[in-house]
Design a binder for these strands. Structure first.
Length: 261
DNA sequence: ATGCCCTATGATATAGGA
């Protein structure tokens, strides 16, 4: 089974890219983030014509997550239990479903903006509630493979950004953020790390500005944390860097994980 | 070649992204 996660940066604006990518890569399950449209506006008919069911959770201009599957889509849950609000709103940043016997979550972790911004505390709180969710789900998952995939907006190590010296005042690399990943691992999850490219880290994001992609000024911030029953089935994991090339692409590339039987 | 920001919105600017 082939499972992917991709911050698509507007599912409506990216529809043709998405459909072509589904045909080329043939994933069984796709976790999408940053739909940037309301649930009703997600182009589920076009996605269905490509062979995929869709469970979406969006609310318009920002955020929005979905799970696409061609191997069944059951027990859909929207939002984390006790998911924190930002400015009075529980934002659409999490959706879970069971697809082909595997439980997956598609997550869009808050950005944080600046370390001193209230959004940063929101990010840490959100990740703490993710940890709580994972702790209770791992405890009852048994042999069912379970994974939390998505845009974590955290680079796990200094090597996961193109130049750590550029991040001295930035989010995504702070000890507080990285501690939330450690906490997530401590409930019984391991990170499924995509294999490196021949010449570099498998980054998953490159800014649109300042030739970041051609210069490979990237960040590895789209991550997958998995239980042992999931991780032991992983036969390969890679970043589909080709999806970032050319005009009109998302600024993120998909992470693709191959599960054996 | 991988190429000089992008998206959605009460839009002719603005917020957010990371």
């Amino acid at each position: 089974m082939r499972i992917a996660t991709w911050n698509i940066n507007s599912v409506t604006s990216r529809l043709e890219h998405l459909l072509a990518w589904l045909e080329r890569v043939e994933p069984d399950v796709v976790c999408l983030q940053e739909l940037k449209c309301a649930t009703d506006a997600v182009p589920i008919e076009s996605i269905a014509a490509a062979g995929y069911e869709t469970a979406a959770h969006g609310n318009g201009r920002w955020n929005g997550v979905a799970i696409l599957s061609r191997v069944g889509l059951a027990d859909v849950v929207r939002d984390l239990p006790a998911q924190p609000e930002f400015e009075g709103v529980i934002e659409p940043r999490a959706i879970g479903a069971t697809c082909g016997g595997v439980r997956v979550w598609s997550l869009y972790v808050p950005n944080g903006r600046e370390p001193s911004h209230p959004h940063f505390q929101y990010k840490l709180e959100w990740l703490a509630r993710l940890r709580d969710t994972a702790a209770s789900e791992v405890a009852v998952a048994g042999d069912v493979p379970l994974a939390y995939l998505g845009d974590y907006n955290i680079a796990p190590t200094d090597a996961d950004v193109w130049d750590i010296s550029e991040f001295s005042e930035s989010t995504h690399v702070t000890p507080e953020e990285r501690a939330t990943l450690t906490a997530l691992a401590q409930v019984g999850l391991v990170e499924v790390v995509p294999r490196p490219l021949k010449y570099d880290i498998a980054y998953t994001f490159w800014d649109y500005r300042q030739l970041a992609f051609p210069k490979n000024r990237g960040m590895r911030i789209d991550l997958a944390y998995a239980t042992k029953p999931f991780a032991t089935r992983v036969t390969d994991a890679w970043v589909d860097r080709d999806a970032r090339k050319g005009k009109g692409t998302s600024d993120h590339a998909p992470v693709v994980i191959e599960l054996g039987p």
